[in-house]
Design a protein around this nucleic acid. Sequence first.
RNA 1: GGAAGCGUAGCUCAGCGGGAGAGCGCUUGCCUUACAAGCAAGAGGUCACAGGUUCGAACCCUGUCGCUUCCACCA
Length: 865
Amino acid sequence: MDKIGTRYDPRNLEKKWYKIWEEKGHFKPSGEGEPYTIVIPPPNITAQLHMGHALNITLQDILIRYKRMRGYNTLWIPGEDHAGIATQNTVEKKLAEEGIHRKDMGREEFLKKVWDWAGEYRKRIVEQIKAIGASCDWSREHFTLDENLNKAVRKAFVSLYKEGYIYRGKYIINWCPRCGTVLSDEEVEHEELEGKFYYIKYYFSDSDKYITIATTRPETMLADTAVAVHPGDDRFKHIIGKEVILPLMNRKLKIIGDPYVDPEFGTGCLKVTPAHDPNDFQIGLRNDLELIEVIDENAKINENGGKYAGLDRYKAREAVVNDLEEKGYLEKIETMQHSVGKCYRCGTIVEPSLSDQWYVKMKPLAERAKLAVQSGEVVFHPERWEKVYIHWLDEIRDWCISRQLWWGHRIPVWYCQDCGKIIVEEETPEECPDCQSKNLKQDEDVLDTWFSSQLWPFTTLGWPDENADLEKYYPTSVLVTAFDIIFFWVARMIMAGYHFKEDKPFSDVYIHQLIRDRKGRKMSKSLGNGIDPLEVIEEYGADPMRFTLAILAAQGKDIKLDTRFIDAYHKFANKIWNATRFVLMNIEDYDGTKLSEGDLKLEDKWILSRLQKTQSIVSNAIDSYDFNIAAKSIYNFFWSEFCDWYIESVKPRLNSDERTIVQNVLISVLDSSFRLLHPFMPFITEELWQKLDVEDGEIIASSWPELKKELLDEDAEEKYSLLMDKVRGIRNVKADLNIPPTSKVQAYFTGSNPDNETKFLIETLANCEVMEFQQNKLSNSVTAYAEEKYTIYVKLVEIDVQNEIKRLEKKLNKSVKEVERFRKKLSNEQFLKNAPEEIIEETKEKLQDATTTKEKLERLIEDLK
RNA sequence: GGAAGCGUAGCUCAGCGGGAGAGCGCUUGCCUUACAAGCAAGAGGUCACAGGUUCGAACCCUGUCGCUUCCACCA
C-alpha cells in the first residue's frame, strides 16, 4: 500500500490523471448504453478563460461524469467559436501596434494572420479547459470556422434562401463605426445616459412664424427631409401640408401627418431623418420621403452635410449647435435621460445608417421554436427562463446576418458583373446561368458568427452529411449555458434544429448564473476584480474550485464569488485527503475478509445507512440539476458523519479483534464516497481511490454506487442519533465548565443503563466513564445535563455551584418558553379541529418532552440550592 | 413603458406551509498519535415593511420600499 503525505497538494496529481484518462480513452463514448450527449458552448477563441467558463464547464463535466458512471453512452463534444468581430478586432489591434491596417495587407494576407493567431489561442483555451478537468472527447473537437462547418453554413444559407427565408434589402441598420460593420439588434447594448435635448426653431417658408422641434441629435438635422406631427393633434392639424425651412441647410421641408408622432413628447413636432433613424425610416416609407445620408461609415459628415462635411459626428454636433445659437434658431437646451445603443464588442455608440444587408425572416421559424417549449419538448431549468424565451420569440424581428468583416464564413452569393444576376449556390459557380459570363464576383461580406453557432448541435455530429453519429447522438440531452445568450444562441439553435433536422437540438436547457465579484459587480479587466480560474487552480487546485462552483450553483441569478469559498472547499479536499490517509494507515494489514451477517456494530449500521441516504440525495439532486444540494449533501456526510462521528467512534475497535470488520466498513464507505464525489472532484478522488485499491481500472470509468436497501436501518439511525445527543450533553457540560476534553469524567445516566455497545461509544466519544446508575443528587461535585429522554449526571472534583445554577437556569428558561408555546397551540380548538392528526400527535409529544425537561431542570436547580 | 429575480446571523447564501440552517468571521477550551488547512463547545436572527389567506406563514396572495437585471423605436 502506498503511503501518502499529510497534506493535499493538487499540483502534480491533476495533470497526471488528466493525461491518463485521455490516453486510456475514457473520454470517448463507451458505445454501450443509452446515449447521453452534450455539446459544449464553444468559448470564443479571443477569450481568456474566466470564471463563467469554469462554472459552465464544471457543471457539464459533473453531468457527464455522473452519467458515464451510471452506464450511459456519454459523449461531450468540445469546440471553440471563431467569434467574428471579437477576433478580427483583436488581430487588427495587434497589427495596429505595428502600424499596419488590414486593408493595407489585403483580405487573403490578413486572414492568414488571423488563422495563425486563432491556432495559437485555440490551443491556449483548450489547455485551460483541460485544466478544469473537462472529460470531453477531444478527438471530436470542432471549430466554428472549420471546413465541414463551412459546408454546413453554405447549405443552410442556400436552402434558407431558396425557401424564401433569406432576403437582401436596404434598411436602417446598427452600424459600428469602430468595427466597420453592421450589428444585429441583439448585438447592440442600450445604456441610459444623460443627454441634451435641443429645441430648434423651424420657420415657415411663407411667414415669420415658426414651430419648435426638440432633438437629442441636432447633427442629424442636416439629413432631415420632413417634419411630422400627429394627424389628430389639434395644435398642428392645420399646418400639415405647409413647408418649413430647415435651418442652416435652407432646404424646404414638408410638414406631414404621421401617427407615429407622440403629441405628448417634446414639442409634438418631429424632425424626420429617414436615413439615420429607424423610426424616421418607416415614416419615410409611409410618406414617400427622400433619403439623404449625411453620416458616413466612419461616423463623419459626408459631402451632403454642406459646410460640416468631414467633421466627426460629435464635432459636427457642436458646430451645428453653435451655428444654430448664433443665428437665433436655438430656443433652449434641456438635459434628459435617454438610452444610447453601443456595440457589444467595443462599446462604441452605434450609428443607425442606411445599408444594403442580408436578413433572415424569423417569424415563421420562431413559431415552431415557441411550440417546442410550450409543449415541453424542450424544457428550461429553472423554468422561469421560458418566459424570457417566449417573450423574445413573440417580439422577434428579422435577423441581419451579413457582416462587413473578413473573418468568418463568406456569404455564398455571387453577382454576375455582366447581367447583374444574383447567384446563390453551395459550390462556387463557374459561370452565370443566365448570360454564361464568367465575370462573377462573390459577396464581400461574411455571416454573423451566430449563424454558424446556431447549427452547432448537429454540425458537431457531422451534418450535413448523414452518418451514424448524427443518428445516434442527435438530439443531444442538455444544453448548459448562462442566460445572457438565450437570444443570441439558445433560441436560434432551437429554430435551426427544427428547421434543418426536423427535431429539437436538446431536451433540456440548464441556465446557470453569471459570476460576479464579491460586491456583485461584473468581473472585468478594467476593474481588476476578476478571479482567474487558472490562478485559482494553481493556488487551490481544480477540485476545490469545481466543488465551490457546484455548491454555489443554486437557482439565483448570479454568483458572488470570493476566494474565501474556494479556500473553504480546499480545506474539504484536505479533509478527504487526511481521512483517507487515516484509513490507509489502518488497512495495511487488511486480509480481504469480507463481512458476514451479524458482524456489524451500531455505528457501522448507522454510517452504512446514512451512506445509502446520501447516495439517493446526491443522485436525485444531480438528476434534477440541483448541484448545490448534491454537493452539500456529500460534504456533510463525509465531513461530519463519516469523519467526525464514525471514524472517531471506531478508533478503539481498530485495536481489537474487530479490526477486520472496521476495515471493511471504512473501505466500503470511503470507496462509495469517492464515487459520489468523483463528478465534483475528479482528480483527488481518482488519486485516492487508486490508493484504496478496491478495483482495477479508473474511478472515472467505475460504476455509480447502487442503493443497497438492505443497509437502510432506521433503528440504528435513531439509536445512534440518541447517542450523539448524549455525547453532546457530556461535552456540553465539560465545555461550559471549562473542563479540558482530555480530562475523563464520570457520567451517570438516569433510566436504564446503556447497553455495553452504547456505553463504550459514549466513553470513546465524550471521553468519560459511564458509571452504573445510582440515585444522584447534585452537589459541589456532581452536575447534570437534562434532556427529555434522560439526565446525565457528571461527577467532577469541584464545581462552582452558583455558576452551575446560572447555567441550568438558562436552559430552564428555554424549556419554559417551549412548554408555553406547545401548550398554547394545543389549547387552540381551531388547531385541534383543522390540523392533521400526525401534527397534533407530534405537538403533544413535544409538549410532553419539553415538560419533562423543564421539570427535571427545576428539580436539579432545587438540588443545587 | 413593460417583465423578471432578489431582500433570512457581521459577510456570502441555502431553506420556500407545521419546533430558524450552512460556510466564512467571532468567543471559549483543546498540539485527543488522519488532518491546527484540525477537534469540541458557544454567542449571534421582530426571516425588508404593511395588510390578507390559514388552526398555523420566512415560506402562499396583495401592496409598499430597497437592490439587480432583461426587454421596448418615444424623437
